[in-house]
Amino acid sequence: MSVDEAAVPAVLAARTGGSARRRGMVARPVALWQRRRAIRLLVGRDLKVRYASSALGYLWSVLEPLLLAGIYWFIFTQVFTRTVGAEPYIVFLIAGLLPWTWFNGAVTDAARALHVEAKLVRSTNVPREVWVVRVVLSKGVEFLLSLPVLFLFAFLYDASVDWQLLLLVPAVLLMATLVLGIGLLLAPLVVLVRDLERIVRIALRLGFYASPVIFAVQDVPEPWDAVFSFNPLAGIFELCRAGFFPGVVDWGHVGLSVAMSLGMLLVGWAVFARLERTVLKEI
């Protein structure tokens, strides 16, 4: 019985280990779900380190987006005359910067997830996706915990609030999907090609200005607005802002976000499954 497993895609290969039985793209999410306790444990540990171990823990997690918001608010309302975004601009900024902080932090950390936890990955038989999912969720919880700051500023600056605030829910789901997809794609690649980590950091820097954080896609002149529409973050940020700025949501952008996030997740997971065995040897 010589099954040449190398000839079939790794995704379909049978490797049964402990309770985690994985065969292909259906079984992988199932195996992950079975080990959700491990994920909860790791996320809990992350949050504990973040919030319990330093008195300023909570402040740290909102400080960066707030400082950035302050700086952009100053530059674009005091130095320049603001022509982009919407009023109150500080709320517009925070509603974009908080989800951007999640995206930025999760992609940076997820890319290094397998590399940084090499010792744990080598010694524990949990589905390897756990290490990426854990980062996405930890950063996601930090995002949720930072939302009160957004509401506080909306209240202080007397922003209008309506039922579309509920669109934050699909925004969170979309962001989690997108970041998980990107993380699953990058984590194994960073183990194999170390300099990719640096490229990711540069790409994120540029990505900030390629994403509608300090402006809206509608502010981008033709023909460039078409390019910005294809950024999956455009739809997500619009959903985040919908509750305070009526009419900001372009459902075309949201549709593209959904399609691209799901596509990213499929591609990311396929690459992850394909590279898993090589990564386990190199790590």
């Binding site: 010589s2 099954v3 040449d4 497993e5 190398a6 790794a10 290969a13 049978a14 490797r15 049964t16 280990g17 402990g18 309770s19 985690a20 010792k119 744990l120 990955v121 080598r122 010694s123 524990t124 038989n125 898993e276 065995r277 386990l280 040897k281």
Partner: peptide
């Protein structure tokens, strides 16, 4: 232990494993 995957063939383990290998790794 399931912390490495075979390039060829199969390894089927139908019960849980307590791995005392690289134990301080975790």
């Amino acid at each position: 232990a399931g912390v490495m995957l075979p390039d060829r063939g199969t390894v089927d383990v139908t019960a849980g494993v307590a791995p005392l290998i690289e134990i301080t790794g975790g």
